[in-house]
Design a protein around this nucleic acid. Structure first.
Length: 154
DNA sequence: GCCAACGTTGGC
DNA sequence: GCCAACGTTGGC
């Protein structure tokens, strides 16, 4: 039995950019492009290798949970912040003092799509952060109870 | 395409 | 440090 605490996360990705099928094909994905301090801090300060990730499709016809992934690296500087031709370029960041971090995530499995309306209808998820009004964070913590309620139905 | 909600920026 | 203006997210 592991003594390492495992955290659960929900991470949003646009399926046009990187959906669960991309991850299934490649096995692994660098989670670059996060440009929000709260989301960065979650990756930098709280994520650990082995943490469980609910892979969520956003900005698409059917938003919802589409699969499971696992954190496979600790946080390291996101290289796209230094690439002047990248849309994620940040002129205020430097290699000496990088502003943005990423983690790597590996494929665990594809699930049926648990859509947003279904999630909203589950009483166990009433307090889930991603479902709160006005939420825009691309990375949010998921409680163990929320994880259990969701995984039971996937 | 609309728009609510939120984060960031920059003038003062 | 305040806050208006602006940009972005993301569901619909």
């Amino acid at each position: 039995m592991s003594t390492r605490p495992v955290h659960y996360w929900l991470m949003k990705s646009e399926p046009d950019e990187a959906g669960i099928d991309h991850l299934a094909r490649d096995g692994k994905l660098g989670w670059f492009g996060v440009r929000n301090y709260q989301a960065r801090n979650f990756m930098r300060d709280q994520m650990q290798v082995g943490d469980v990730v609910l892979f969520y499709h956003s900005s698409c016809p059917e938003p919802g949970i589409a699969g499971i992934a696992e954190v496979s690296s600790s946080a390291y500087p996101d290289p796209t912040q230094f690439e002047s031709e990248s849309k994620y370029f940040d002129p205020k960041s430097s290699r000496e003092n990088p502003r943005w971090m990423q983690v790597d995530v590996k494929f665990v499995k594809k699930t049926r799509l648990m859509g947003l309306p279904e999630m909203r209808a589950m009483p166990e998820l009433a307090d889930m952060q991603v479902l709160q009004r006005g939420n825009r964070l691309s990375i949010t913590p998921v409680s163990r109870a929320e994880w259990e309620a969701i995984s039971k139905k996937l």
